[in-house]
Design a protein around this nucleic acid. Sequence first.
DNA 1: CCAAAAGTGTTCAGCTTACACCCATGA
DNA 2: TCATGGGTGTAAGCTGAACACTTTTGG
Lengths: 232, 232
Amino acid sequence: MNKTKTTYQANPRHYVAVDSIVFGFDGEDLKILLIKRKIEPLKGEWSLMGGFVQEKQSIDQAAEIVLKNLTGLDNVYLEQLSTFGEVQRDPIDRVISVAYYALIKLNEYDRQIVHNNGGEWFSISNYPKLILDHEEMVQTAISKLRRKCRTQPIGFELLPEKFTIPQLQSLYEAIWMQKLDKRNFRKKFLSMNLLDKLEEKDKENSKKGAFYYKFNKEKYEQLTSRGFIFEI
Amino acid sequence: MNKTKTTYQANPRHYVAVDSIVFGFDGEDLKILLIKRKIEPLKGEWSLMGGFVQEKQSIDQAAEIVLKNLTGLDNVYLEQLSTFGEVQRDPIDRVISVAYYALIKLNEYDRQIVHNNGGEWFSISNYPKLILDHEEMVQTAISKLRRKCRTQPIGFELLPEKFTIPQLQSLYEAIWMQKLDKRNFRKKFLSMNLLDKLEEKDKENSKKGAFYYKFNKEKYEQLTSRGFIFEI
DNA sequence: CCAAAAGTGTTCAGCTTACACCCATGA
DNA sequence: TCATGGGTGTAAGCTGAACACTTTTGG
Protein backbone atom coordinates (compact mmCIF):
# COMPACT_ATOMS: atom_id res chain seq x y z
CA MET A 1 0.00 0.00 0.00
CA ASN A 2 2.77 2.34 0.95
CA LYS A 3 4.65 1.32 -2.12
CA THR A 4 1.68 2.02 -4.35
CA LYS A 5 1.24 5.49 -2.96
CA THR A 6 4.88 6.04 -3.69
CA THR A 7 4.32 5.08 -7.29
CA TYR A 8 1.84 7.90 -7.77
CA GLN A 9 3.77 10.33 -5.63
CA ALA A 10 6.70 10.36 -7.99
CA ASN A 11 4.46 12.36 -10.32
CA PRO A 12 3.56 16.03 -10.25
CA ARG A 13 0.11 17.42 -9.48
CA HIS A 14 -1.55 20.12 -11.52
CA TYR A 15 -4.16 22.78 -11.09
CA VAL A 16 -7.26 21.67 -12.95
CA ALA A 17 -9.90 24.19 -13.91
CA VAL A 18 -13.21 24.08 -15.71
CA ASP A 19 -14.34 26.77 -18.16
CA SER A 20 -17.83 26.92 -19.57
CA ILE A 21 -19.22 28.28 -22.78
CA VAL A 22 -22.81 29.18 -21.99
CA PHE A 23 -25.10 29.52 -24.99
CA GLY A 24 -28.41 31.33 -25.05
CA PHE A 25 -30.87 32.34 -27.75
CA ASP A 26 -32.89 35.54 -27.69
CA GLY A 27 -35.02 34.87 -30.76
CA GLU A 28 -32.53 36.62 -33.00
CA ASP A 29 -28.95 35.68 -32.28
CA LEU A 30 -27.09 32.81 -30.73
CA LYS A 31 -25.33 34.33 -27.72
CA ILE A 32 -22.58 33.44 -25.31
CA LEU A 33 -22.24 34.56 -21.73
CA LEU A 34 -18.97 36.25 -20.85
CA ILE A 35 -17.75 37.73 -17.62
CA LYS A 36 -15.19 40.28 -16.59
CA ARG A 37 -12.50 38.30 -14.87
CA LYS A 38 -12.42 38.92 -11.16
CA ILE A 39 -8.97 37.62 -10.31
CA GLU A 40 -5.47 38.46 -11.34
CA PRO A 41 -3.88 38.00 -13.76
CA LEU A 42 -5.87 39.73 -16.51
CA LYS A 43 -8.43 41.02 -14.03
CA GLY A 44 -11.15 42.97 -15.82
CA GLU A 45 -10.63 41.26 -19.18
CA TRP A 46 -13.44 39.33 -20.82
CA SER A 47 -13.38 35.67 -20.09
CA LEU A 48 -15.42 32.50 -19.97
CA MET A 49 -16.80 31.59 -16.60
CA GLY A 50 -14.58 29.15 -14.84
CA GLY A 51 -13.18 27.87 -11.60
CA PHE A 52 -10.79 25.38 -10.12
CA VAL A 53 -11.66 21.76 -9.51
CA GLN A 54 -11.67 21.13 -5.78
CA GLU A 55 -10.63 18.03 -3.87
CA LYS A 56 -13.98 16.34 -3.54
CA GLN A 57 -15.56 17.48 -6.76
CA SER A 58 -15.77 15.49 -9.93
CA ILE A 59 -14.98 17.67 -12.92
CA ASP A 60 -18.64 17.52 -13.98
CA GLN A 61 -19.67 18.73 -10.54
CA ALA A 62 -17.12 21.52 -10.68
CA ALA A 63 -18.64 22.71 -13.95
CA GLU A 64 -22.16 22.54 -12.51
CA ILE A 65 -21.15 24.52 -9.45
CA VAL A 66 -19.43 27.25 -11.43
CA LEU A 67 -22.54 27.59 -13.56
CA LYS A 68 -24.82 27.61 -10.54
CA ASN A 69 -22.77 30.26 -8.74
CA LEU A 70 -22.66 32.65 -11.63
CA THR A 71 -26.12 32.21 -13.06
CA GLY A 72 -28.24 30.66 -10.34
CA LEU A 73 -29.12 27.84 -12.72
CA ASP A 74 -28.83 24.15 -12.31
CA ASN A 75 -30.37 21.22 -14.15
CA VAL A 76 -29.26 22.68 -17.44
CA TYR A 77 -27.79 20.92 -20.43
CA LEU A 78 -24.07 20.79 -19.69
CA GLU A 79 -21.61 18.67 -21.59
CA GLN A 80 -17.87 18.25 -21.65
CA LEU A 81 -16.23 19.71 -24.71
CA SER A 82 -12.49 19.17 -24.60
CA THR A 83 -9.50 19.55 -22.35
CA PHE A 84 -6.86 22.19 -22.95
CA GLY A 85 -3.48 21.29 -21.59
CA GLU A 86 -0.72 23.34 -23.18
CA VAL A 87 1.97 24.01 -20.60
CA GLN A 88 2.02 27.74 -21.23
CA ARG A 89 -1.68 28.38 -21.73
CA ASP A 90 -1.84 30.37 -18.52
CA PRO A 91 0.94 32.95 -18.05
CA ILE A 92 1.05 32.69 -14.26
CA ASP A 93 1.13 29.01 -13.57
CA ARG A 94 0.28 25.80 -15.28
CA VAL A 95 -3.44 25.10 -15.33
CA ILE A 96 -5.11 22.30 -17.22
CA SER A 97 -8.60 23.32 -18.18
CA VAL A 98 -11.55 21.13 -19.02
CA ALA A 99 -13.99 23.08 -21.18
CA TYR A 100 -17.74 22.51 -20.97
CA TYR A 101 -20.61 24.01 -22.87
CA ALA A 102 -24.06 24.71 -21.54
CA LEU A 103 -27.35 25.40 -23.29
CA ILE A 104 -29.79 27.50 -21.33
CA LYS A 105 -33.25 28.95 -21.78
CA LEU A 106 -32.74 32.69 -21.77
CA ASN A 107 -36.24 33.52 -20.65
CA GLU A 108 -36.14 31.36 -17.55
CA TYR A 109 -32.99 33.06 -16.71
CA ASP A 110 -32.22 35.25 -13.75
CA ARG A 111 -30.56 38.13 -15.50
CA GLN A 112 -29.93 39.92 -12.24
CA ILE A 113 -27.52 37.30 -10.90
CA VAL A 114 -25.56 37.37 -14.14
CA HIS A 115 -25.36 41.11 -13.99
CA ASN A 116 -24.19 41.10 -10.39
CA ASN A 117 -21.39 38.78 -11.37
CA GLY A 118 -20.23 41.00 -14.19
CA GLY A 119 -21.73 38.76 -16.83
CA GLU A 120 -22.89 39.94 -20.22
CA TRP A 121 -24.40 38.31 -23.30
CA PHE A 122 -22.70 38.68 -26.67
CA SER A 123 -23.68 37.52 -30.10
CA ILE A 124 -21.41 34.76 -31.39
CA SER A 125 -20.74 36.95 -34.40
CA ASN A 126 -19.57 39.89 -32.33
CA TYR A 127 -17.89 39.37 -29.00
CA PRO A 128 -14.82 40.92 -27.40
CA LYS A 129 -11.30 39.56 -27.31
CA LEU A 130 -10.98 36.85 -24.70
CA ILE A 131 -8.16 35.91 -22.37
CA LEU A 132 -5.85 32.91 -22.72
CA ASP A 133 -7.14 30.27 -25.12
CA HIS A 134 -10.80 31.02 -24.44
CA GLU A 135 -11.32 32.13 -28.02
CA GLU A 136 -10.31 28.66 -29.18
CA MET A 137 -12.67 27.11 -26.65
CA VAL A 138 -15.55 29.21 -27.94
CA GLN A 139 -14.87 28.26 -31.54
CA THR A 140 -14.59 24.59 -30.61
CA ALA A 141 -17.91 24.84 -28.78
CA ILE A 142 -19.66 26.54 -31.69
CA SER A 143 -18.43 23.86 -34.08
CA LYS A 144 -19.57 21.12 -31.76
CA LEU A 145 -22.99 22.70 -31.27
CA ARG A 146 -23.43 23.14 -35.01
CA ARG A 147 -22.63 19.52 -35.69
CA LYS A 148 -24.47 18.08 -32.74
CA CYS A 149 -27.77 19.91 -33.14
CA ARG A 150 -28.11 18.28 -36.54
CA THR A 151 -28.44 14.79 -35.11
CA GLN A 152 -29.48 15.31 -31.49
CA PRO A 153 -32.56 17.17 -30.28
CA ILE A 154 -30.58 19.60 -28.16
CA GLY A 155 -31.91 22.77 -29.78
CA PHE A 156 -34.90 22.63 -27.43
CA GLU A 157 -32.57 23.33 -24.52
CA LEU A 158 -32.23 26.84 -25.89
CA LEU A 159 -35.95 27.46 -26.28
CA PRO A 160 -38.79 27.82 -23.79
CA GLU A 161 -41.00 24.80 -23.10
CA LYS A 162 -43.54 26.11 -25.60
CA PHE A 163 -42.24 27.44 -28.87
CA THR A 164 -43.49 28.04 -32.39
CA ILE A 165 -42.12 26.52 -35.57
CA PRO A 166 -40.86 29.91 -36.79
CA GLN A 167 -38.99 30.34 -33.49
CA LEU A 168 -37.46 26.91 -33.85
CA GLN A 169 -36.41 27.72 -37.39
CA SER A 170 -34.86 31.02 -36.28
CA LEU A 171 -32.82 29.09 -33.75
CA TYR A 172 -31.35 26.76 -36.34
CA GLU A 173 -30.74 29.69 -38.65
CA ALA A 174 -28.84 31.46 -35.87
CA ILE A 175 -26.74 28.41 -35.05
CA TRP A 176 -25.89 27.63 -38.66
CA MET A 177 -25.82 31.25 -39.77
CA GLN A 178 -27.88 30.57 -42.83
CA LYS A 179 -31.45 31.04 -43.97
CA LEU A 180 -33.59 27.93 -44.33
CA ASP A 181 -36.68 27.34 -46.42
CA LYS A 182 -39.68 27.47 -44.09
CA ARG A 183 -41.74 24.92 -45.98
CA ASN A 184 -38.97 22.36 -46.03
CA PHE A 185 -38.00 23.04 -42.42
CA ARG A 186 -41.52 22.62 -41.10
CA LYS A 187 -42.12 19.55 -43.21
CA LYS A 188 -38.93 17.83 -42.08
CA PHE A 189 -39.33 18.63 -38.43
CA LEU A 190 -42.98 17.68 -38.20
CA SER A 191 -42.37 14.47 -40.15
CA MET A 192 -40.33 13.18 -37.21
CA ASN A 193 -43.46 13.33 -35.04
CA LEU A 194 -41.60 14.64 -32.04
CA LEU A 195 -43.56 17.84 -31.56
CA ASP A 196 -46.95 18.08 -29.90
CA LYS A 197 -49.10 20.92 -31.21
CA LEU A 198 -50.88 22.98 -28.55
CA GLU A 199 -54.17 24.84 -28.90
CA GLU A 200 -52.55 28.08 -27.87
CA LYS A 201 -51.02 30.61 -30.20
CA ASP A 202 -48.12 33.00 -29.79
CA LYS A 203 -49.39 36.41 -30.81
CA GLU A 204 -46.25 38.34 -29.93
CA ASN A 205 -44.48 37.96 -33.21
CA SER A 206 -47.34 38.29 -35.68
CA LYS A 207 -50.89 39.39 -35.98
CA LYS A 208 -52.06 36.05 -37.24
CA GLY A 209 -50.31 34.21 -34.42
CA ALA A 210 -48.35 30.98 -34.58
CA PHE A 211 -49.28 27.77 -32.84
CA TYR A 212 -47.14 26.67 -29.93
CA TYR A 213 -45.51 23.25 -29.93
CA LYS A 214 -43.81 21.19 -27.25
CA PHE A 215 -40.99 18.71 -27.69
CA ASN A 216 -42.18 15.24 -26.67
CA LYS A 217 -39.16 13.73 -25.00
CA GLU A 218 -40.88 10.45 -24.15
CA LYS A 219 -41.75 9.89 -27.78
CA TYR A 220 -38.18 10.69 -28.76
CA GLU A 221 -36.72 8.17 -26.34
CA GLN A 222 -39.20 5.54 -27.39
CA LEU A 223 -38.38 6.02 -31.07
CA THR A 224 -34.64 6.15 -30.34
CA SER A 225 -34.75 2.80 -28.58
CA ARG A 226 -36.23 1.37 -31.78
CA GLY A 227 -33.38 2.69 -33.91
CA PHE A 228 -34.79 6.07 -34.88
CA ILE A 229 -32.16 8.71 -35.57
CA PHE A 230 -33.00 12.38 -35.17
CA GLU A 231 -31.82 14.46 -38.08
CA ILE A 232 -32.57 17.94 -39.29
CA MET B 1 2.31 39.08 -8.79
CA ASN B 2 2.60 37.57 -5.38
CA LYS B 3 -1.07 38.16 -4.85
CA THR B 4 -1.95 36.46 -8.12
CA LYS B 5 0.05 33.38 -7.23
CA THR B 6 -1.85 33.31 -3.98
CA THR B 7 -5.13 33.27 -5.83
CA TYR B 8 -4.23 30.02 -7.55
CA GLN B 9 -2.56 28.53 -4.50
CA ALA B 10 -5.77 28.45 -2.56
CA ASN B 11 -6.76 25.60 -4.88
CA PRO B 12 -5.77 21.94 -4.80
CA ARG B 13 -3.60 20.22 -7.39
CA HIS B 14 -4.43 16.86 -8.91
CA TYR B 15 -2.67 13.99 -10.54
CA VAL B 16 -3.45 14.08 -14.24
CA ALA B 17 -2.97 11.00 -16.36
CA VAL B 18 -3.45 10.12 -20.00
CA ASP B 19 -4.84 6.79 -21.17
CA SER B 20 -4.88 5.72 -24.79
CA ILE B 21 -7.12 3.41 -26.73
CA VAL B 22 -4.95 2.15 -29.57
CA PHE B 23 -6.83 0.73 -32.54
CA GLY B 24 -5.42 -1.58 -35.18
CA PHE B 25 -6.86 -3.60 -38.04
CA ASP B 26 -5.56 -6.99 -39.11
CA GLY B 27 -7.72 -7.45 -42.19
CA GLU B 28 -10.37 -9.23 -40.18
CA ASP B 29 -11.14 -7.55 -36.88
CA LEU B 30 -10.83 -4.14 -35.36
CA LYS B 31 -8.46 -4.57 -32.45
CA ILE B 32 -7.37 -2.69 -29.38
CA LEU B 33 -4.03 -2.85 -27.70
CA LEU B 34 -4.09 -3.71 -24.00
CA ILE B 35 -1.30 -4.16 -21.51
CA LYS B 36 -0.82 -5.89 -18.23
CA ARG B 37 -0.56 -3.14 -15.68
CA LYS B 38 2.94 -2.83 -14.29
CA ILE B 39 2.28 -0.79 -11.17
CA GLU B 40 0.19 -1.25 -8.08
CA PRO B 41 -2.65 -1.13 -7.50
CA LEU B 42 -4.16 -3.78 -9.77
CA LYS B 43 -0.76 -4.86 -11.04
CA GLY B 44 -1.10 -7.61 -13.62
CA GLU B 45 -4.67 -6.70 -14.61
CA TRP B 46 -5.51 -5.71 -18.17
CA SER B 47 -5.46 -2.02 -18.76
CA LEU B 48 -5.18 0.69 -21.35
CA MET B 49 -1.74 2.13 -21.80
CA GLY B 50 -1.32 5.27 -19.79
CA GLY B 51 0.94 7.49 -17.79
CA PHE B 52 1.03 10.61 -15.71
CA VAL B 53 1.30 14.08 -17.20
CA GLN B 54 4.62 15.57 -16.21
CA GLU B 55 5.50 19.17 -15.38
CA LYS B 56 6.72 20.30 -18.75
CA GLN B 57 4.50 18.18 -20.95
CA SER B 58 1.32 19.29 -22.60
CA ILE B 59 -1.34 16.63 -22.29
CA ASP B 60 -1.03 15.91 -26.02
CA GLN B 61 2.70 15.41 -25.61
CA ALA B 62 2.13 13.13 -22.64
CA ALA B 63 -0.14 10.95 -24.77
CA GLU B 64 2.42 10.87 -27.58
CA ILE B 65 5.21 9.88 -25.25
CA VAL B 66 3.24 7.08 -23.63
CA LEU B 67 2.44 5.71 -27.06
CA LYS B 68 6.02 6.04 -28.21
CA ASN B 69 7.39 4.29 -25.14
CA LEU B 70 5.11 1.32 -25.38
CA THR B 71 4.94 0.82 -29.12
CA GLY B 72 7.93 2.61 -30.57
CA LEU B 73 5.60 4.57 -32.80
CA ASP B 74 5.25 8.26 -33.31
CA ASN B 75 3.60 10.34 -36.00
CA VAL B 76 0.44 8.36 -35.65
CA TYR B 77 -3.13 9.57 -35.64
CA LEU B 78 -3.80 10.50 -32.03
CA GLU B 79 -6.77 12.48 -30.87
CA GLN B 80 -8.21 13.50 -27.57
CA LEU B 81 -11.37 11.66 -26.64
CA SER B 82 -12.70 12.83 -23.31
CA THR B 83 -11.63 13.50 -19.74
CA PHE B 84 -12.68 11.27 -16.89
CA GLY B 85 -12.78 13.02 -13.56
CA GLU B 86 -14.88 11.15 -11.03
CA VAL B 87 -13.37 11.57 -7.59
CA GLN B 88 -13.32 7.85 -6.82
CA ARG B 89 -12.40 6.50 -10.24
CA ASP B 90 -9.02 5.33 -8.91
CA PRO B 91 -9.15 3.47 -5.59
CA ILE B 92 -5.75 4.64 -4.38
CA ASP B 93 -5.77 8.33 -4.97
CA ARG B 94 -7.59 10.84 -7.05
CA VAL B 95 -6.43 10.88 -10.65
CA ILE B 96 -8.04 12.84 -13.44
CA SER B 97 -7.49 11.03 -16.71
CA VAL B 98 -7.56 12.43 -20.22
CA ALA B 99 -8.37 9.65 -22.67
CA TYR B 100 -6.92 9.61 -26.19
CA TYR B 101 -7.42 7.25 -29.06
CA ALA B 102 -4.84 6.30 -31.66
CA LEU B 103 -5.17 4.68 -35.07
CA ILE B 104 -2.14 2.73 -36.18
CA LYS B 105 -1.10 0.65 -39.14
CA LEU B 106 -0.63 -2.83 -37.79
CA ASN B 107 1.80 -3.92 -40.47
CA GLU B 108 4.23 -1.09 -39.92
CA TYR B 109 4.23 -2.02 -36.37
CA ASP B 110 7.03 -3.30 -34.22
CA ARG B 111 5.28 -6.17 -32.52
CA GLN B 112 8.37 -6.97 -30.49
CA ILE B 113 8.27 -3.75 -28.49
CA VAL B 114 4.63 -4.26 -27.69
CA HIS B 115 5.31 -7.79 -26.56
CA ASN B 116 8.21 -6.70 -24.37
CA ASN B 117 5.91 -4.25 -22.66
CA GLY B 118 3.26 -6.86 -21.95
CA GLY B 119 1.02 -5.61 -24.69
CA GLU B 120 -1.49 -7.74 -26.54
CA TRP B 121 -4.06 -7.16 -29.25
CA PHE B 122 -7.71 -8.04 -28.65
CA SER B 123 -10.70 -7.91 -30.91
CA ILE B 124 -13.16 -5.21 -29.88
CA SER B 125 -15.79 -7.91 -29.68
CA ASN B 126 -13.81 -10.04 -27.25
CA TYR B 127 -11.42 -8.48 -24.81
CA PRO B 128 -10.79 -9.05 -21.11
CA LYS B 129 -12.19 -7.15 -18.16
CA LEU B 130 -10.37 -3.86 -17.71
CA ILE B 131 -9.39 -1.94 -14.62
CA LEU B 132 -11.03 1.23 -13.30
CA ASP B 133 -13.23 2.97 -15.86
CA HIS B 134 -11.17 1.79 -18.84
CA GLU B 135 -14.10 -0.20 -20.18
CA GLU B 136 -16.11 3.01 -20.44
CA MET B 137 -13.19 4.70 -22.18
CA VAL B 138 -13.00 1.91 -24.76
CA GLN B 139 -16.72 2.07 -25.47
CA THR B 140 -16.57 5.84 -25.81
CA ALA B 141 -13.67 5.48 -28.23
CA ILE B 142 -15.44 2.87 -30.35
CA SER B 143 -18.52 5.08 -30.59
CA LYS B 144 -16.44 8.04 -31.58
CA LEU B 145 -14.52 6.08 -34.19
CA ARG B 146 -17.74 4.70 -35.66
CA ARG B 147 -19.24 8.13 -36.00
CA LYS B 148 -16.10 9.90 -37.11
CA CYS B 149 -15.00 7.52 -39.84
CA ARG B 150 -18.28 8.20 -41.61
CA THR B 151 -17.43 11.82 -42.29
CA GLN B 152 -13.64 12.00 -42.01
CA PRO B 153 -11.12 10.00 -44.02
CA ILE B 154 -9.50 8.52 -40.94
CA GLY B 155 -9.95 4.89 -41.91
CA PHE B 156 -6.76 5.09 -43.95
CA GLU B 157 -4.79 5.50 -40.74
CA LEU B 158 -5.58 1.86 -40.00
CA LEU B 159 -4.51 0.57 -43.43
CA PRO B 160 -1.16 0.34 -45.17
CA GLU B 161 -0.26 3.02 -47.71
CA LYS B 162 -1.42 0.75 -50.50
CA PHE B 163 -4.68 -1.11 -50.00
CA THR B 164 -7.35 -2.72 -52.11
CA ILE B 165 -11.02 -1.80 -52.20
CA PRO B 166 -12.02 -5.13 -50.63
CA GLN B 167 -9.57 -4.43 -47.78
CA LEU B 168 -11.03 -0.96 -47.30
CA GLN B 169 -14.51 -2.42 -47.25
CA SER B 170 -13.50 -5.05 -44.69
CA LEU B 171 -12.22 -2.28 -42.48
CA TYR B 172 -15.52 -0.41 -42.49
CA GLU B 173 -17.37 -3.66 -41.95
CA ALA B 174 -15.19 -4.38 -38.92
CA ILE B 175 -15.70 -0.92 -37.47
CA TRP B 176 -19.46 -0.87 -37.98
CA MET B 177 -19.89 -4.59 -37.42
CA GLN B 178 -22.08 -5.02 -40.43
CA LYS B 179 -21.78 -6.32 -43.95
CA LEU B 180 -21.86 -3.80 -46.78
CA ASP B 181 -22.78 -4.26 -50.44
CA LYS B 182 -19.54 -4.35 -52.42
CA ARG B 183 -20.94 -2.71 -55.54
CA ASN B 184 -22.43 0.20 -53.62
CA PHE B 185 -19.37 0.57 -51.42
CA ARG B 186 -16.97 0.71 -54.35
CA LYS B 187 -19.20 3.05 -56.29
CA LYS B 188 -19.60 5.49 -53.43
CA PHE B 189 -15.96 5.52 -52.43
CA LEU B 190 -14.62 5.88 -55.94
CA SER B 191 -17.16 8.59 -56.77
CA MET B 192 -15.40 10.87 -54.28
CA ASN B 193 -12.26 10.70 -56.44
CA LEU B 194 -9.95 10.50 -53.48
CA LEU B 195 -8.29 7.21 -54.37
CA ASP B 196 -5.50 6.83 -56.91
CA LYS B 197 -5.48 3.44 -58.60
CA LEU B 198 -2.06 1.80 -58.91
CA GLU B 199 -0.88 -0.61 -61.60
CA GLU B 200 0.03 -3.17 -59.02
CA LYS B 201 -2.21 -5.90 -57.72
CA ASP B 202 -2.45 -7.59 -54.36
CA LYS B 203 -2.36 -11.31 -55.01
CA GLU B 204 -2.34 -12.41 -51.40
CA ASN B 205 -6.04 -12.55 -50.89
CA SER B 206 -7.22 -13.92 -54.19
CA LYS B 207 -6.06 -15.66 -57.30
CA LYS B 208 -7.32 -12.97 -59.59
CA GLY B 209 -5.72 -10.24 -57.52
CA ALA B 210 -7.13 -6.87 -56.54
CA PHE B 211 -5.75 -3.52 -57.62
CA TYR B 212 -4.02 -1.41 -55.02
CA TYR B 213 -5.18 2.13 -54.36
CA LYS B 214 -3.69 5.01 -52.45
CA PHE B 215 -5.50 7.75 -50.58
CA ASN B 216 -4.72 11.11 -52.20
CA LYS B 217 -4.50 13.47 -49.26
CA GLU B 218 -3.65 16.51 -51.38
CA LYS B 219 -6.79 16.03 -53.43
CA TYR B 220 -8.82 15.62 -50.27
CA GLU B 221 -7.53 18.86 -48.77
CA GLN B 222 -8.06 20.70 -52.02
CA LEU B 223 -11.66 19.50 -52.30
CA THR B 224 -12.29 20.18 -48.61
CA SER B 225 -11.19 23.78 -48.95
CA ARG B 226 -13.85 24.12 -51.65
CA GLY B 227 -16.59 22.86 -49.38
CA PHE B 228 -16.41 19.15 -50.16
CA ILE B 229 -17.54 16.91 -47.32
CA PHE B 230 -16.26 13.36 -47.09
CA GLU B 231 -19.01 10.86 -46.43
CA ILE B 232 -19.28 7.13 -46.67
C1' DC C 1 -57.39 47.88 -46.43
C1' DC C 2 -52.83 46.89 -46.00
C1' DA C 3 -48.60 45.23 -43.96
C1' DA C 4 -46.49 41.33 -41.82
C1' DA C 5 -45.81 36.87 -40.53
C1' DA C 6 -48.02 31.99 -40.65
C1' DG C 7 -49.07 28.31 -43.12
C1' DT C 8 -49.38 25.08 -47.08
C1' DG C 9 -47.87 21.16 -51.97
C1' DT C 10 -45.68 19.83 -55.89
C1' DT C 11 -42.05 18.83 -58.93
C1' DC C 12 -37.42 17.40 -60.19
C1' DA C 13 -32.87 15.73 -59.51
C1' DG C 14 -29.80 13.06 -57.21
C1' DC C 15 -28.81 9.65 -54.03
C1' DT C 16 -29.40 5.22 -51.68
C1' DT C 17 -30.55 0.55 -51.99
C1' DA C 18 -31.27 -3.84 -53.72
C1' DC C 19 -29.85 -7.20 -56.57
C1' DA C 20 -26.91 -11.30 -60.12
C1' DC C 21 -23.61 -12.47 -63.16
C1' DC C 22 -18.94 -12.76 -65.50
C1' DC C 23 -13.76 -12.61 -64.92
C1' DA C 24 -9.12 -14.07 -63.84
C1' DT C 25 -6.23 -17.28 -61.86
C1' DG C 26 -3.82 -20.74 -58.88
C1' DA C 27 -4.20 -25.17 -57.43
C1' DT D 1 -11.75 -27.46 -64.42
C1' DC D 2 -13.23 -25.59 -60.50
C1' DA D 3 -13.22 -22.87 -56.40
C1' DT D 4 -12.29 -18.31 -54.85
C1' DG D 5 -12.54 -13.66 -54.49
C1' DG D 6 -12.57 -9.35 -57.86
C1' DG D 7 -15.12 -6.58 -60.49
C1' DT D 8 -19.27 -4.46 -62.87
C1' DG D 9 -24.70 -1.89 -64.10
C1' DT D 10 -29.42 -0.88 -63.65
C1' DA D 11 -33.96 0.05 -61.90
C1' DA D 12 -37.08 1.69 -58.08
C1' DG D 13 -37.90 4.30 -54.21
C1' DC D 14 -36.80 7.89 -51.29
C1' DT D 15 -35.06 12.21 -49.85
C1' DG D 16 -33.53 17.01 -50.30
C1' DA D 17 -34.08 21.37 -52.69
C1' DA D 18 -36.38 24.73 -55.12
C1' DC D 19 -40.17 27.46 -55.50
C1' DA D 20 -45.28 31.15 -54.82
C1' DC D 21 -49.48 31.96 -53.18
C1' DT D 22 -53.30 32.23 -49.54
C1' DT D 23 -54.65 33.20 -44.72
C1' DT D 24 -55.22 35.91 -40.63
C1' DT D 25 -55.49 39.99 -38.11
C1' DG D 26 -53.93 44.32 -35.72
C1' DG D 27 -53.38 48.87 -36.71
